[in-house]
């Protein structure tokens, strides 16, 4: 009896000292506060990027070239350049990325996986150096849309192929066997069964890749973009202006007088990102 009482008293005392329920609540609340603070910081970054620039949007902003040393005019050449570069690089990278993703998933080649992993880690500015050396100088493309698009394509190639690899790899083995059991060859199983069934994720990653390509700055400074182009591009070998490089040049070498144009450009870029990613996520959700 006596012993019993002692025991229970002691255990309540110990429990009070570090009540596990309280302790659990405390850590939960602390973590939640941290998470919400950062989520709020990120949201304010979005707002600061999007909102202040919107008021400079008008027809001229989207249809005129910059003038008077960036104090007036608009961003039309940069907008056009970004769209051209993005579309061209994706046109190269998507088919190639799908093929490479297939190789990663359906052929058990360790060294190809290794190569793609290495590619995915190479800094974008190094891709820029390579593009500068190979495309612009050795192959004589100079600073041009084509050189930039090829460089970007190479950069997003590992992004696309890894994602194709992951979805294709997740398709159950039984499904492949069922196709083989009908007498299909390997290439038929791949192109007529597996590829159609990862269509949706190919769409998703294409948009993700578009988001990547449209915001890349460093490789384009080295291979495709000029600070100011007097004419619109006339061929694939013309240099271009692009949104991110325009923003970079404005921030790096212009002061107050061009601030408005930089803000307007930032808003356009962030809007692009939001739209492109929202589409990508929508495709992904439908799949579920």
């Amino acid at each position: 009896m006596n012993e019993n009482t002692n025991f229970s008293q002691e255990s309540t005392k110990r429990a009070r000292k570090s009540n596990p329920v309280n302790k659990g609540m405390r850590s939960k609340v602390t973590l939640r506060v941290i998470t919400y603070i950062f989520a709020a910081l990120i949201l304010s970054l979005f707002l600061l990027a999007l909102v202040p620039g919107i008021r400079y949007w008008n027809l001229d902003f989207f249809t005129q070239a910059p003038s008077n040393g960036m104090t007036s005019g608009g961003i039309f050449p940069a907008l056009l350049g970004s769209i051209l570069l993005t579309l061209l690089s994706l046109a190269i990278a998507i088919p190639l990325g799908i093929l490479l993703g297939i190789v990663l998933s359906e052929y058990n080649l360790e060294y190809i996986r290794f190569v793609v992993t290495i590619l995915s880690g190479i800094p974008s500015v190094v891709y820029g150096l390579f593009g500068l050396g190979l495309f612009c100088i050795t192959l004589g493309m100079r600073t041009s849309i084509l050189a930039g698009a090829l460089t970007l394509a190479l950069m997003v190639l590992p992004v696309i192929s890894s994602s194709v690899y992951e979805t294709m790899h997740a398709i159950p083995r039984e499904l492949r066997e069922a196709a083989y059991a009908l007498g299909a060859r390997k290439s038929e199983v791949i192109f007529e069964m597996l590829v159609p069934s990862v269509k949706r994720s190919i769409l998703t990653v294409s948009f993700v890749a578009a988001g990547r390509a449209i915001g890349e700055t460093a490789p384009l400074i080295l291979t495709a973009a000029v600070f100011y182009a007097t004419n619109l591009p006339t061929s694939l070998l013309s240099p271009v202006m692009t949104l991110p490089t325009h923003l970079y040049f404005l921030s790096a070498s212009y002061g107050e007088s061009a601030r408005w144009m930089a803000q307007g450009t930032t808003s356009v870029l962030i809007l692009f990102v939001i739209v492109v990613y929202t589409i990508a996520f929508a495709f992904r959700r439908e799949k579920k």
Partner: peptide, 24 residues
């Protein structure tokens, strides 16, 4: 939702992040 916010942030070009911090 929070994950989504992070995913959007992952897509923001670094030049935009740099510009916002530079300005504000």
């Amino acid at each position: 939702m929070i994950r989504r916010i992070f995913e959007y942030l992952a897509g923001v070009p670094s030049v935009v992040i740099a510009f916002v911090l530079l300005t504000f």
